[in-house]
Amino acid sequence: MNTENGKFEKMQDELLASHSARISFLEHFRDHRQEGFGSYFADWGLDQKVEVKAPKEPWNADVFRTHPWDDSMEQDYGLFAPFTRDEMKSAPAWYSIHVKMVEAGTLQSDFFAYGTKAADKVGINRITKVLKENDSAEVEGCARDIMRHMGGIPKVRGRRSAEDCPTAKFYWNYRFAREISNELKSVDARTVYQALYNSSLWRKLVNTLEYQVTVLNNKRILAAFIAFIIEGRETGRIREGTQEKEISRAVALVSPLTSMRQLSMVETQEILALFNKVASS
């Protein structure tokens, strides 16, 4: 994909630096929910020529925010098949894709504005309220949420599209689920997908894979590790609400095993048995 990081970051910087720019940004998202949406991003260094196929049905806000496990999974994942793994981690690439998806009617611009509070769940309501009240902190919070959900704010938060952008999270989660169930037949893709969708677990996992224990990225090792986590949750070893801490503990347990041995040469079931053995010793 042909994007320009320099231009993209400059435009994000300008937006973050000015209240009036943020107001215009929110107004655009309110007023151009489909037609004319891309005009705002003309100078952002996005790939204007990128092509994204349309899904069978347009996505609603719930599907965009938390893609449920349903019959459309494979087809929706397939929308992003033409892109490289690096593009699926890149903020400008996701912005380019989302602009096309909004213009094609697959998404609506206000979907990106959802917030974590219950009152902020519906994007258009949030934007309308924030613009009416004109509180600078609320305006900034809403603009930042949109920027994160569009693909991320790399200069502020690093390359965290897989965490910040719900479409990227759907893509990577489903990709992992497919690969893991392929490696470990006893674990089905749906179970993996639903287990990984937990936000604190997901955040910790993708951070670990990219920055801490990269050996877990190997398909076989990752499959065994995720099965180890899922089993841990089922048996109560990992308690609800403390997944982040428990993942850290799981990583601390298994990573010494991977430094002495190329575990990708071992069958996945055997790796899982090794992980369980070390956890119970």
Partner: peptide, 17 residues
């Protein structure tokens, strides 16, 4: 002998004997 190819940014790590 073998060689690992590692690309942390794309969650990729494979070993090629």
């Amino acid at each position: 002998y073998g060689c690992e190819i590692i690309s942390p940014r794309t969650f990729y790590r494979e070993f090629f004997p």
